[in-house]
Amino acid sequence: MLKQREETREVDRADIGALLQRLAADGRNWAEAEVTLARTELGELKAQAIRAVAFAMLGFAAGFCFLVVLSQAGIAFLAPLVGNTGVAALIVSAVLLALVGACFMVLRSAIAWRTESIFFRWFARRSSDAGP
């Protein structure tokens, strides 16, 4: 016959083994659930990215079409005033170039460029350019 302590040890060992098996199974289930969640979130993120790219491409195409029509209208409007279509086209091109330059300057001042990035070092303001 076993003593009380020895019986307790045998029961404890059996319970610990079962608990360890249950812990391993729970760990596997948790890992599988995390992988499933990550796949679901990645799928949703992918769908959002595709929609954003499609919307951006549509906006770019619409903006480009607007600039083409605006340029043609400006040339047609200026041609009788300046007497030549070529001169009118040069004037409209100069105005559009000035508009692009102004947009670039606003963009440059609006965005805080990270100077540690190799690409953005060219855009970064140097301390000698800042002035007093």
Rank of each mutant, 00 (worst) to 15 (best):
A79D: 13
D15A: 14
I111V: 09
L99W: 09
R5H: 06
A14E: 12
A89H: 00
E44R: 15
T40S: 15
F119P: 03
F55V: 15
F77Y: 03
R125D: 05
I91H: 02
L67N: 15
V106L: 11
M1V: 11
A79T: 15
E44W: 11
R125M: 07
G101K: 02
D129C: 05
R126C: 04
A89W: 00
A49Q: 11
A38P: 01
L19H: 06
L81T: 08
G86Y: 10
L96Q: 03
R108V: 00
A24F: 02
E116H: 03
A38N: 05
Q21T: 03
G59H: 00
I118F: 04
P132R: 14
A73I: 05
S71N: 04
A56H: 03
A88N: 01
Q72P: 00
A88M: 02
F104W: 11
V82E: 07
L58D: 13
W113Q: 01
W113D: 02
A124I: 00
G83S: 04
L23Y: 05
V106I: 14
L19N: 12
A76S: 13
Q48L: 14
C65G: 11
L78Q: 07
A25R: 09
L90M: 14
T36L: 14
E6R: 10
A112I: 08
W113G: 00
P132I: 08
E32S: 08
A102P: 02
A56P: 00
V82C: 06
E7L: 15
E10I: 08
T36G: 11
D26R: 12
R13A: 10
A88L: 02
R121Y: 01
I111Q: 03
